[in-house]
Nucleic acid binder design. Structure first.
Length: 465
DNA sequence: TGGGGTTAT
DNA sequence: ATAACCC
């Protein structure tokens, strides 16, 4: 079942050479609609129940047992043993224990190890091709277009047996070796298999992969065969794939709010959205959302795989039953801030903005958050990461001012969440040598908390030197 | 619903 | 600063 399909090697080298020339000429112009970007090969890599996998690696005694990862009173994810016994993602701990009394629970509120391993996965994928976009901690998109082209150019003309697909083909569609798009996706499936092998051999992690011509389709097809398998989508089956969705809410990019608005217009299926009047949709949702989601309904998605690079923000949050005093808030904020400072120190870059986020208790309103932010005074930024001076006290003072600008502490209040976020991160090497700033920044001229995270510093960042 | 993240307005 | 989206 998992065996690669054997393909008829009905190719002579002459056919192949002619075909390689067609790649950039006639075939491209015929197959790719005029004015659109050229055909791409995208892979979506999706780790199996990521947090549970990390916990089983940390503590191998958990392997083989039904395992759930708990945050507050929720089982946020669980392994497949637990799923077979009826535990679902985001299930209440009570319900989960009732369904599955043998369920082993571990606390997953501290994301540190998950985050670290998540970035190791991204870095491993970046070794294949640098264009990797993260989606959450457990999913990555990689644009394989260039890699596939290179492999095809190096294909030895006397060994066409290399042209076999790896993993499943959606719909069991047969491959046409004379179709350049089929061949490219097939090579993409081989690279996807190598990626999954590398993830398992180097990190001990299993996951799924989907290969298709854009991000939307790659993501949808990666979930077809579920744990630890991969699927490639050939263009002829893309309509079947998107019509297999039972509701438009399942379309990535159409969230809760948009789905509700569409439902109010009588749109619930992919077909409904495809055939709905574009003009009316644009009037109802605005031209931007309307055009984007209607293209999605046809399986079209021209959004590029955007390299994520290092994170744009660091945040720590804690939800609470009830926070109703300023002292309570202050102690939570101190805890969150202390953890953030460790992370920022490891990263090596410096945040220039700090934000405090709260959620007020309210009976029905859907958890709306409020935030206040301000820039961090430069004398504090410079102390960051040096570990030399107490940076906590002035930062807590700033955060408490932000707090009081949102919450009238002289009146009763009830908060259910506190979160601190560092953003507007700037690389140290943005401070140019030779400027006054350079010599006034202790961390630049002396050694300090060295960044453990060594993100590949390509092109632009190095121009300063 | 947790504890994160991103981009657009 | 908020609102939408993603996990």
């Amino acid at each position: 079942m998992l065996q690669p399909r054997r393909l008829p090697a009905a190719w002579c080298s002459e056919t192949r050479d002619r075909w390689l020339h067609l790649v950039d000429a006639e075939v491209h112009d015929r197959v790719v609609p005029a004015g659109s970007s050229s055909s791409r090969v995208i892979v979506h890599v999706d780790l199996d129940c990521f947090y549970a996998q990390v916990e089983m690696i940390s503590n191998p005694e958990l392997k083989g047992k039904p395992l759930g990862v708990q945050q507050k009173y929720l089982v946020v994810t669980c392994n497949y043993e637990a799923r077979e016994l009826g535990v679902k993602k985001l299930m209440n701990v009570r319900d989960a224990k009732e369904k599955c009394p043998q369920l082993v629970l571990v606390n997953g509120e501290d994301l540190t190890r998950y985050r670290e391993i998540s970035y190791k996965v991204t870095e491993l994928l970046e070794e294949f091709s640098p264009v990797v976009e993260r989606l959450g901690f457990d999913e990555n998109f990689v644009d394989l277009t260039e890699m596939v082209e290179k492999r095809l150019q190096q294909l030895p003309s006397d060994d066409l047996s290399a042209l076999t697909v790896s993993g499943h083909v959606y719909n069991n569609q047969s491959i046409n070796l004379h179709d350049v798009l089929h061949i490219k996706l097939l090579v993409g499936s081989q690279i996807a298999a190598e990626m999954r092998e590398a993830m398992y051999n180097q990190l001990g992690l299993t996951g799924c992969a989907g290969v298709a011509s854009n991000k939307l389709l790659a993501k949808l097809v990666s979930g077809i065969f579920k744990p630890n398998q991969q699927t490639v989508l050939l263009p002829e089956s893309s309509q079947d794939l998107i019509h297999s969705l039972k509701h438009i809410k399942e379309m990535p990019g159409i969230g809760y709010k948009t789905a509700k608005r569409l439902e109010a217009l009588g749109i619930s299926s992919v077909h409904d959205l495809q055939t709905f009047s574009s003009k009316i949709l644009e009037k109802e949702l605005g031209i931007s959302i309307a055009q984007r989601i209607q293209k999605l309904s046809f399986g079209e998605d021209n959004s590029p795989v955007t390299p994520s690079g290092p994170p744009q923000s660091f945040s720590e949050e804690d939800s609470l039953k009830k926070c109703s005093s300023e002292v309570e808030a202050k102690s939570k904020i101190q805890e969150l801030l202390a953890n953030l400072l460790k992370r920022v120190c490891q990263d090596g870059r410096k945040p220039h903005t700090i934000r405090l986020i709260i959620r007020r208790y309210s009976s029905e309103k859907h958890c709306s958050r409020e935030s206040r932010q301000c820039s961090i005074p430069s004398h504090i930024i410079q102390k960051l990461g040096t570990g030399s001076y107490d940076v906590m006290t002035p930062m807590v003072d700033i955060l408490m001012k932000l707090f009081r600008s949102m919450v009238n502490v002289k009146m009763p209040f009830h908060l259910t969440l506190l979160s601190v976020c560092f953003c507007n991160l700037k690389s140290l090497n943005t401070t140019k040598k030779g400027t006054i700033d350079y010599y006034l920044t202790p961390s630049l001229s002396t050694t300090s908390c060295s960044g453990k995270r060594s993100f590949k510093m390509k092109d632009t960042q190095m121009e300063d030197f």
